[in-house]
Amino acid sequence: MKTLLQQHRYALGITLRRFLAQPFSSLSNLLVIALALAIPLLGASVLQSVQPVAREVSIQPELTLFLKIDIAPAERTGLADRIKTEHADLIESVRVVPREAALAELKAHPAWSNALAALPDNPLPDAIVATLRDADDIASQADLLARQWGQWPGVERVQLDSAWVQRLEALLRFGRIGLGLLALGVALVVLATVFNTVRMQALSQREEISVARLLGATESFVRRPFLYQGALTCTLAALMAIVLSALALRPLNRALFDLARSYDAEFILRLPPAGWLLTAILAIALLGALSARWSVTRSTHF
Score class of each variant (00 low, 15 high):
78 G>D: 13
229 Q>G: 06
175 G>N: 08
293 R>E: 08
35 L>P: 08
145 L>N: 08
150 G>L: 07
194 V>P: 06
10 Y>R: 08
242 I>V: 15
69 I>N: 14
232 L>Q: 07
227 L>N: 01
235 T>L: 15
27 L>W: 08
267 F>A: 10
243 V>G: 15
282 L>D: 02
188 L>D: 05
72 A>P: 04
292 A>V: 04
259 L>V: 15
167 R>C: 02
169 E>L: 13
204 S>C: 03
65 L>A: 13
178 G>D: 08
52 P>H: 11
36 A>D: 08
190 V>W: 02
214 L>I: 05
25 S>Y: 01
7 Q>R: 07
88 A>N: 11
273 P>D: 14
185 G>L: 14
162 S>I: 07
248 A>E: 10
238 A>P: 04
290 L>Q: 03
34 A>T: 09
37 L>E: 08
4 L>C: 00
94 V>I: 09
203 L>W: 11
258 D>T: 15
112 W>I: 00
30 L>Q: 04
255 A>M: 14
243 V>E: 13
113 S>I: 00
49 S>V: 10
266 E>P: 01
101 A>G: 03
253 N>G: 11
62 E>T: 15
139 A>I: 13
6 Q>I: 02
103 L>Q: 09
18 R>C: 00
287 L>Q: 09
126 D>N: 10
201 Q>Y: 01
211 V>G: 02
295 S>W: 01
146 A>N: 07
22 Q>T: 10
250 R>N: 13
124 L>D: 04
61 P>D: 11
25 S>G: 13
92 E>W: 03
210 S>E: 14
38 A>F: 05
299 S>G: 08
20 L>G: 11
36 A>F: 07
17 R>D: 09
124 L>N: 03
268 I>G: 08
145 L>M: 12
28 S>R: 07
206 R>S: 10
14 I>H: 00
120 P>Q: 01
97 V>C: 00
132 L>K: 06
99 R>M: 03
30 L>I: 12
221 F>Q: 02
209 I>H: 01
78 G>V: 05
174 F>E: 08
203 L>P: 00
110 P>K: 00
103 L>H: 00
82 R>T: 12
137 D>E: 13
44 A>Y: 13
17 R>T: 05
4 L>E: 04
182 L>Y: 06
39 I>N: 05
38 A>I: 05
300 T>A: 10
274 A>Y: 11
70 D>N: 15
189 V>W: 06
82 R>G: 09
75 E>A: 15
139 A>Y: 08
137 D>T: 12
74 A>T: 14
230 G>D: 03
206 R>V: 06
174 F>P: 00
178 G>V: 07
289 A>V: 04
254 R>F: 12
150 G>T: 07
207 E>V: 10
204 S>F: 05
188 L>N: 05
75 E>W: 05
177 I>Q: 13
277 L>I: 14
133 R>I: 10
279 T>Q: 14
